[in-house]
């Protein structure tokens, strides 16, 4: 009845910005990033990979309410780079890593199909 539209989970609202940075003044080199219309898929991925960065001192995310598709990501760095740079660096690494995964997958799949052709049809059902 009064349930919000499901597409509000992933479509940005009018004038909404995907990501906004708020500098946390009480902590040095620390920023909060608010990611709108995102969930654990991105939140956990970024927080975990930021923690692996030696220049990042603190990284964590929270989703304030399960019904609200907003991720709050806090990043604190050691001062050599700012949190925004750290985040961009991690994002670029992740895009590259997923690209690598895709290439690896296609390569393996091609090998697999090549091998399967030798054995005749596999165990697969028909589509």
């Amino acid at each position: 009845m009064n349930a919000p539209d499901r597409f509000e989970l992933f479509l940005l609202g009018e004038g909404e910005k995907k990501i906004t940075e708020t500098v946390v003044n009480s902590i040095p080199n620390c920023s909060d990033f608010m990611l709108k219309k995102e969930d654990h898929t991105v939140g956990n991925l970024l927080a975990e990979h930021l923690k692996k960065d030696p220049q990042v001192m603190f990284a964590a995310y929270k989703i304030g309410h399960p019904n609200v598709p907003e991720v709050l990501l806090r990043v604190q760095t050691n001062g050599q780079i700012n949190p925004r740079e750290a985040l961009v660096k991690v994002l670029k690494e992740l895009v590259a890593a997923y690209g690598q995964l895709g290439r690896e997958f296609q390569k393996e799949l091609a090998l697999r199909q090549y091998a399967d052709q030798g054995e005749g049809s596999g165990s697969g059902g028909a589509i």
Binding site: E21, L35, L87, L91, G99, F105
Partner: peptide, 19 residues
């Protein structure tokens, strides 16, 4: 699998773009 990788890359690339 291929589409999944593409979608997540697009998500991340969108964030890079915004930042």
């Amino acid at each position: 699998v291929a589409e999944g990788i593409k979608v997540i890359q697009q998500k991340l690339a969108g964030l890079i773009h915004e930042l």
